[in-house]
């Protein structure tokens, strides 16, 4: 079970212009604490998402399912949001606009949609931005508590090569972030065993794990963690291998051929890799050529499958041969 940890970072409301901010502040506080996404689309209803589903927000700050009653952000609202999230300086975000999202203080990510400008067939820029998806980053310290003890190899005193699998929005990044923090600071979650803390290298291509701003992590990622921010995963892994001598490499959402090669390289160098990938299960993963090779070679010692239903995240563990592990935790038997 994930969650139950400390949730920090409620500063995301500052991203919105006064009018929308006051509507959001009218929402019930406990709902506001659970909100995961706020979606703004010019001329269409203001939407908030939490794990239970979506709701629209009226001009008075009430939740509704009827789209006709919802507040519709106008051109002025969108212009203001863009101005605020870019620190009044859109020209400083050329790289971000090419990628389609902005990371703001607090580690929150704002996805953008609009009209793209092409140059040599590649997206150069987004203009006429009319859609914003504010993904609220939550630091749930303790999210990895129950999983972490299974990932530690006590005999060899290292972390096992692990692949975390889940569909989007099921808490992969939150889990990776807490794993990073705990491994780096030497705790093993709910297990009483302690170690000295390991050197952790994080390749944070989308600035989600550490939420870095100007190269400095916004989240607590532990004392012995190095973050390679906004770096392509494969290249970042190789750079870390060569220069930062990590004990553990943490990387989000691997899937391409070169990612698989870099993971193999790291494993051969004796470095533990904890990676995540999109997918509901190993079968689905197996259908992707790059991942298939990794699985067939039994590169990962542990698979973690995340599942979220009615706001709670549960997990299952599988070993190298994809056998589901039966685990005994706190006196009760369950599929961990």
């Amino acid at each position: 079970m994930l969650g139950g940890g400390r949730i920090t970072n409620l500063n995301w409301l500052e991203l919105f212009p006064d009018r929308i901010k006051s509507m959001l502040l009218e929402l019930p506080p406990e709902y506001l604490g659970r909100v995961e996404e706020v979606r703004i689309r010019e001329g269409r209803p203001l939407e908030v998402n939490e794990s239970g589903g979506h709701r629209f927000v009226t001009g008075q700050g009430l939740l509704t399912m009827e789209k006709d009653k919802a507040y519709r952000p106008g051109r002025d609202d969108c212009r203001r949001i863009l101005d605020l999230i870019s620190n009044h300086s859109l020209y400083t975000l050329e790289e971000e606009l090419r990628k389609g999202f902005i990371t703001v203080p607090g580690g929150h990510r704002i996805g953008l949609a609009g009209r793209t400008v092409l140059s040599n067939g590649r997206v150069e820029h987004i203009r006429d931005i009319s859609g914003f998806n504010v993904r609220i980053a939550r630091e749930v310290q303790g999210a990895a508590n129950d999983i972490l003890p299974f990932l530690y190899d006590e005999k060899e005193r290292r972390m096992k090569h692990t692949l975390i699998l889940s569909p989007p929005q099921h808490g992969k990044t939150t889990l990776l972030r807490d794993l990073t923090r705990q491994i780096s600071s030497g705790s093993l979650g709910s297990s009483p065993v302690k170690h000295a803390g390991m050197k952790v290298g994080v390749i944070d291509e989308r600035s989600e794990i550490a939420g870095s701003l100007h190269g400095v992590p916004s989240f607590d990622v532990g004392p012995r963690t190095d973050v390679m921010d906004a770096c392509p995963k494969a290249e970042g892994m190789m750079m870390m291998l060569r220069s930062m001598s990590p004990d553990v490499l943490i990387v989000d959402e691997i899937g391409r051929e070169e990612d698989a090669e870099a993971v193999t390289e790291a494993l051969h160098a004796g470095i533990s890799v904890i990676a995540s990938a999109h997918g509901s299960g190993p079968e689905e993963l197996h259908s992707r050529p790059a991942m298939q090779k990794l699985m067939d070679n039994r590169m990962f010692e542990m698979y973690v499958l995340l599942q979220r239903s009615s706001g709670r995240t549960t997990f299952r563990l599988m070993d190298r041969q994809l056998r589901v592990l039966q685990l005994r935790v706190k006196g009760e038997t369950h599929h961990a």
Partner: peptide, 10 residues
């Protein structure tokens, strides 16, 4: 226009 477009435009 200040701050609302890309560098060249600015």
């Amino acid at each position: 226009t200040l701050g609302t477009s890309d560098r060249q435009d600015q």
